[in-house]
Simulated assay, not measured.
Amino acid sequence: MSMHPATRAAGRPAAAGAAALTAVLTLADPASAHAEVEADIPRALARNLTLPFVSEAESDSAGFQRVRVVLPDGIAPGDVTLADAPRGWKRKATSDGYTVVGPALNTGTDAEHKVRIRRLPDARQLVFKTVETYADGEISRWIELPTGGAAPEQLAPVLEVQGATEAAATSAGPDRQKAAGRSGGVSAGLVAVPLLLGAGAWWIRARASSGSG
Rank of each mutant, 00 (worst) to 15 (best):
T50R: 15
T99M: 10
A151D: 11
R207K: 15
P52Q: 02
N48F: 05
G185C: 00
L155S: 01
R87G: 05
L195I: 15
L49M: 11
A18K: 14
L82N: 02
S55E: 12
G213K: 09
I143W: 02
R87Y: 07
V193W: 06
P121N: 08
P146I: 04
A16M: 13
A19K: 14
R176Y: 05
A39L: 12
V70P: 02
P42F: 07
P72H: 09
R91C: 04
N106Y: 09
V80D: 07
A201H: 05
E132M: 13
K90A: 14
R87T: 13
D175T: 14
R119T: 08
G63C: 08
A14F: 00
Q162M: 14
E58I: 00
V127L: 05
G17L: 12
A168V: 06
Q125V: 03
P5K: 01
R205E: 11
L105H: 04
T109I: 06
P152G: 06
V101K: 09
W89Y: 08
A9K: 01
V131R: 05
A179P: 04
A156K: 01
V80H: 06
A31H: 13
A169M: 13
A208M: 10
A9D: 02
L195M: 15
D73V: 09
G63S: 11
A188P: 02
Y134P: 00
P174S: 09
A85L: 05
A104C: 08
G189Q: 09
D122Q: 14
S95H: 10
Q65V: 12
R141Y: 03
L159Y: 00
L71N: 02
G200L: 14
E38V: 08
F128W: 13
A206L: 10
G211R: 11
V54G: 00
W203C: 04
A111H: 00
G163N: 06
D73W: 04
D73E: 14
R68Q: 15
D73F: 07
A104T: 04
A76V: 01
T81C: 01
L105Q: 05
S210R: 15
A33L: 03
P42E: 09
G181E: 14
K92T: 15
T26P: 01
A31R: 15
G17D: 12
P42A: 12
I204D: 10
A14S: 00
A169K: 15
L190E: 11
S59H: 00
S209Q: 14
T99H: 03
V24T: 13
R124N: 04
A83E: 12
Q177P: 03
H113G: 00
G108R: 10
G63M: 07
E160M: 06
G185M: 06
L190G: 04
S140N: 11
G163T: 07
L126I: 05
